[in-house]
Amino acid sequence: MAARKTTAKPNVSPEELTQYYRDMLLIRRFEEKAGQLYGMGLIGGFCHLYIGQEAVVVGLEAAAEEGDKRITSYRDHGHMLACGMDPNGVMAELTGREGGYSKGKGGSMHMFSREKHFYGGHGIVGAQVPLGAGLAFADKYKGNGRVTFTYFGDGAANQGQVYETFNMAALWELPVVFVIENNQYAMGTAMKRSTSTPDIYHRGNAFGIPGEMVDGMDVLAVKAAGEKAVKHCRAGKGPYILEIKTYRYRGHSMSDPAKYRTREEVSKMREERDPIDHVREMLVQGGHASEEDLKAIDKEIKAVVNASAEFARESPEPALDELWTDIYAEAAD
């Protein structure tokens, strides 16, 4: 890990920093395990890993309050773990089992938790953006002070519905943070081949939405930006855009050979900008954790992840009559 500025005055305590380390490591190890289970044929279909982007969700969750909502695309495992959903339930959904969050009927791209205010998991690029604004609309209607984090990719940022939503969110002053996870690629298309201007967050200017670029490999920078955005929304000033520069180490999905970028580009990122190494270093250098402490955390996380994989293999497939349930909701009366 070469020269990198660590935030001058960390906006966190050593305990919090340790927690972020733990949360990011959980995502990384979980995703590695998911990749492994995919390789064994236990997970099918599309499976989009979040490795490399961990600081984005962990930093923003650190800026959220209980009751705030989040919604994202199909690259959703990290978001679910970061908002406190059970790794067992997530992994079992990946394997299509009864114990999964959607009883095996949603899969990697479609998971939800009302309890944790996680609204999916959406497979259509960009569709979650108006949905997220709609969640914020509901909160504003109810006047409950909640904020919705609406995540989408650099590729999704070229969808028309995103700008339809920017317009209405600004017009109606909806409490929504638009989080552009700019990992610089949409499948095999580098951003500069798809996007007319280099900075996506500037597009908010056209709608009067403030925004900023954030270093997404630095969890503290993300947290600080998140706090600012949330404050803006909670003050009733309408939406805010965070364009978070990040990087995915793995292919777009499990079946992507990633030939559109060099191996050097990836390894440079991994070696110089890894968000987990960054926090690890801060912990060690600041004297907040010893190598032993960190090893203990690693071990603990590994156990959680292994248990989730075990659960996901043991949980039975859904009963066949599940095919016919959850198509219509019953009237409550």
Partner: peptide, 8 residues
Amino acid sequence: LYMSGGQM
């Protein structure tokens, strides 16, 4: 509703 196992 279906994709969420009845939650949404």
